[in-house]
Simulated scan of single mutants.
Amino acid sequence: MAYREGLELRARKQLGFAFRDISEHLPGAFIIYRADKEDDELFYANQEFLHMAGYKDMDELFRLTKKSFSNLIREDEKKKIEASIWKQIDNGNGNDYIHFHLRRADGSYLSVLDHGRIVENQQYGKVFYVLFMDWEDIKSHYSEKFSG
Score class of each variant (00 low, 15 high):
Ile22Gln: 12
Ile22Ser: 10
Ser23Leu: 09
Ser23Tyr: 15
Ser23Ile: 10
Ser23Ala: 15
His25Phe: 15
His25Ile: 06
Gly28Thr: 13
Gly28Met: 13
Ala29Pro: 03
Ala29Glu: 08
Phe30His: 13
Ile31Met: 11
Ile31Phe: 00
Ile32Glu: 03
Tyr33Pro: 07
Tyr33Gln: 04
Asp36Asn: 14
Lys37Leu: 05
Glu38Gln: 06
Asp39Val: 03
Asp40Gly: 08
Asp40Ile: 04
Glu41Pro: 02
Glu41Val: 05
Glu41Thr: 15
Leu42Cys: 01
Phe43Met: 03
Phe43Gln: 01
Ala45Val: 06
Asn46Val: 08
Asn46Thr: 08
Asn46Asp: 11
Asn46Arg: 10
Gln47Pro: 00
Glu48Met: 04
Glu48Asp: 10
Phe49Met: 09
Phe49Asp: 08
Leu50Asp: 05
Leu50Thr: 05
His51Leu: 00
His51Trp: 01
His51Gln: 04
Met52His: 07
Met52Ile: 05
Gly54Met: 06
Tyr55Asp: 04
Tyr55Thr: 07
Tyr55Arg: 04
Lys56Asp: 12
Met58Gln: 11
Glu60Pro: 00
Glu60Met: 10
Leu61Asp: 04
Phe62Met: 12
Phe62Asn: 09
Arg63Asn: 08
Leu64Val: 07
Thr65Ala: 03
Lys66Ala: 14
Lys67Arg: 15
Ser70Cys: 08
Ser70Glu: 04
Asn71Trp: 01
Asn71Ala: 02
Asn71Thr: 04
Asn71Phe: 00
Asn71His: 10
Arg74Pro: 02
Glu77Thr: 12
Glu77Lys: 11
Lys79Glu: 15
Lys79Trp: 14
Lys79Pro: 08
Lys79Tyr: 15
Lys80Ala: 14
Ile81Gly: 09
Ser84Met: 13
Ser84Lys: 11
Ile85Pro: 00
Lys87Ser: 14
Lys87Met: 15
Ile89Glu: 14
Asp90Lys: 06
Gly92Ile: 10
Asn93Ala: 12
Gly94Cys: 08
Gly94Lys: 13
Asn95Cys: 12
Asp96Lys: 09
Tyr97Asn: 10
Ile98Lys: 07
Ile98Cys: 12
Ile98Arg: 07
His99Trp: 04
His101Thr: 12
His101Ala: 13
His101Arg: 15
Leu102His: 01
Arg103Ala: 14
Arg103Ser: 14
Arg104Ile: 05
Arg104Val: 03
Arg104His: 10
Ala105Leu: 09
Ala105Asn: 11
Ala105Lys: 11
Asp106Lys: 07
Gly107Asp: 07
Ser108Ile: 04
Tyr109Ser: 09
Tyr109His: 13
Tyr109Asn: 07
Val112Ser: 01
Asp114His: 08
Asp114Glu: 12
Asp114Met: 06
His115Thr: 13
Arg117Gln: 15
Val119Ala: 08
Val119Arg: 11
Val119Gly: 02
Glu120Ile: 01
Glu120Cys: 00
Asn121Leu: 05
Asn121Thr: 11
Asn121Phe: 05
Gln122Gly: 13
Gln123Ser: 10
Gln123Lys: 12
Gly125Thr: 03
Gly125His: 04
Lys126Trp: 13
Lys126Phe: 13
Val127Glu: 02
Val127Lys: 00
Tyr129Trp: 11
Phe132Leu: 06
Met133Leu: 10
Asp134Met: 02
Asp134Val: 01
Asp134Ser: 05
Trp135Cys: 00
Glu136Gln: 09
Asp137Phe: 06
Asp137Tyr: 06
Ile138Asp: 01
Ile138Cys: 02
